[in-house]
Amino acid sequence: MDKQQRMELRRQAGYRDLPKPQTKEKGPEYSLSYVCCSCRTSNMRQYNLEPCHYPKSIECPICKGVAVCVGRHFKPPKKSDTAQWKKVEYLIEHGFMFQKIRPVKNCYDSVPYPETLAQAKDFVVKYQRYAVKTPYNKAIKQD
């Protein structure tokens, strides 16, 4: 007698319950990163909203400053890496929210983001038409 037959006999005898159908609750599809450049932290947030309706900025849970939404493709640098955080802050100030930039239409190849602050300055000049114009870029500059 194989395992399936034994389990069926136990169920019929009342010694084993039928497995309950597992239903997975459908939650938010996306987790987006929110970055606070003043305390150098990144926090992931999920909302039961469409991704386009997620808040563009939230209050930083650590320093109570402004944490800006930089999407789901952002990989934060180490907290101690000040050069990389300066680059991140520079890109955010100029409207680059770490979205994918695809200069060629109907092509899935995207432009890689710069690795240094010097490269970021050239990147901002070269791809300024892809920058996101938002009112909270000024809020980051004031902090």
Rank of each mutant, 00 (worst) to 15 (best):
D2K: 05
R6D: 13
R6G: 00
M7R: 10
R11E: 03
Y15K: 03
R16V: 08
D17V: 08
L18H: 07
P19E: 04
K20V: 04
P21V: 03
T23P: 01
K24G: 04
S33K: 04
V35A: 11
C36T: 09
C37F: 04
S38C: 06
C39H: 02
T41C: 14
T41M: 13
T41S: 14
T41V: 13
S42C: 12
N43T: 14
Y47M: 01
N48T: 09
L49T: 02
L49E: 05
E50L: 09
E50C: 04
P51A: 15
C52K: 14
C52V: 10
H53S: 10
P55C: 14
K56M: 09
K56P: 01
K56Q: 13
I62C: 01
C63F: 10
C63D: 10
C63W: 06
K64V: 01
K64M: 10
A67N: 06
A67V: 04
V68W: 08
C69H: 11
C69F: 07
V70D: 14
G71A: 05
G71P: 00
R72A: 10
R72P: 06
K78W: 14
D81P: 02
D81H: 12
A83P: 01
A83Q: 10
Q84H: 12
K86Y: 01
K87L: 12
V88R: 14
E89F: 00
L91F: 02
L91N: 06
E93K: 14
H94N: 10
F96P: 04
Q99C: 03
Q99V: 00
R102E: 12
P103I: 01
P103W: 00
K105P: 15
N106W: 06
C107P: 06
Y108V: 08
Y108I: 11
Y108A: 10
D109R: 15
S110K: 07
P112H: 06
P112Q: 04
P112L: 02
Y113A: 04
T116H: 06
L117F: 05
L117N: 07
Q119F: 12
Q119V: 11
K121I: 05
K126P: 00
K126W: 00
K126N: 07
Y127D: 02
Q128N: 15
Y130T: 08
A131I: 12
V132T: 12
T134C: 10
P135N: 13
K138L: 07
K141I: 03
Q142S: 00
Q142C: 04
D143G: 05
D143W: 12
D143Y: 09
